[in-house]
Design a protein around this nucleic acid. Sequence first.
DNA 1: GCTAGCCCGCAACTTTCGTTGCACGTCAGA
DNA 2: TCTGACGTGCAACGAAAGTTGCGGGCTAGC
Lengths: 220, 220
Amino acid sequence: MSPGVIRVVLVDDEPMVCAHLRAILDSAPDITVVDQAQDGAAAVEAVVRHRPHVVLMDLRMPGVDGLTAIERIARLPEPPAVVALTTFDADQYVVRALRAGAAGFLVKTTPPEDLIGLVRVAADGHTVLSPAATRRLVAVRAGEQAARDRALHRVRELTERETEVLAGLGEGLSNAQIAGRLSLSEATVKSYVSRMLVKLECANRTQAGLLAYHAGLVTR
Amino acid sequence: MSPGVIRVVLVDDEPMVCAHLRAILDSAPDITVVDQAQDGAAAVEAVVRHRPHVVLMDLRMPGVDGLTAIERIARLPEPPAVVALTTFDADQYVVRALRAGAAGFLVKTTPPEDLIGLVRVAADGHTVLSPAATRRLVAVRAGEQAARDRALHRVRELTERETEVLAGLGEGLSNAQIAGRLSLSEATVKSYVSRMLVKLECANRTQAGLLAYHAGLVTR
DNA sequence: GCTAGCCCGCAACTTTCGTTGCACGTCAGA
DNA sequence: TCTGACGTGCAACGAAAGTTGCGGGCTAGC
């Protein structure tokens, strides 16, 4: 599968956790834990020294914390894949960790037997996320998903042309601007808007614009 | 590793691609391709019939497209993990696919030998992303964050009364409705709106409404 | 005590929006 | 073939949204 053995560095301020992870990973023939570190500074050193393929890193640590360590490691030449670990459900660090250059975000409740596969995938350069992290990443607020579903359901009732017009509303454009973009007369755009408002059960273009946003029609 | 064999359904309008994927995956002892489909509608049927653990789905297909199919599958009871596939580098569909309920987003240039591990990880409930998809996703989320910050920064320039009016815009209310809620004349609300638009650098109330939403003024 | 600056409130006027009615093409089915 | 439903496009008219100007109250500073 992988060309050669996958070298792994573990970073956690709790030695028990490191030992536990090491025991799991060393049971795989193609994975070797080459070092472990107790804080961010030591982690960066270990990475420089051992040039591992994968780093499993706790985020909450004394001294240099995990996020900072990830940033520093990501700046190294040919950086390893750093997978962030947290005790609690994916918290607000998901986005920041990925931005810092993390190649994954897992909760510590991840079943041990899954971990080996996850390390292999990370070593291949892919990103792996716990389900909770994915939810966090995709839908910031709870309830947003439900709103999106409802919005999408209605948007699907629209014709292609109507959807294009709706996208314009989602950006807050005027009828004239939409007309220009779609090469239509302003009058035509008006009639599209009017028909859409009925279908979407919106009272005015502002509501339709918000709905377009909910539906993910506007990337912004 | 996994309890039993992982059942997989392949969805791609190009039979060659399906055959190729099937050959790769069937070489793994713990993976079985139980069915393949050429479009979204057939994909949903196949999922209902075979109850697979994982679905590999092309996004660009004739008829019911991949995104729609993902949404429908995600609404089924005990849905499988749907991994989206695209030919090109992660395009604008990444966010939408994940929001629709996808458990992964891979480019078709993914090395075959990686694919088996990726399917196993997806079957465990984790999310897998190609590097390009991750960059795209992080960039989008970072952009949203920045948009929110900018929005909040501007909203702070507003007076209390103006903020109340803005909240109304964020719900898509008319001037008359806002006037009623705040016990003002409609004319007064208009002047507030006009002053706000200048401060917020918005061209119209729809843009202001979207800004209010970004700023978190509307709970919805 | 004046005045400069700000927030608040309103009315008259202009611009944009939204509704309604109409015409043309396409496509499915009687 | 015809017909009825539907998507698309436009124009005219009434209804909103948005602009501008004005006055009153409040506070800070000279």
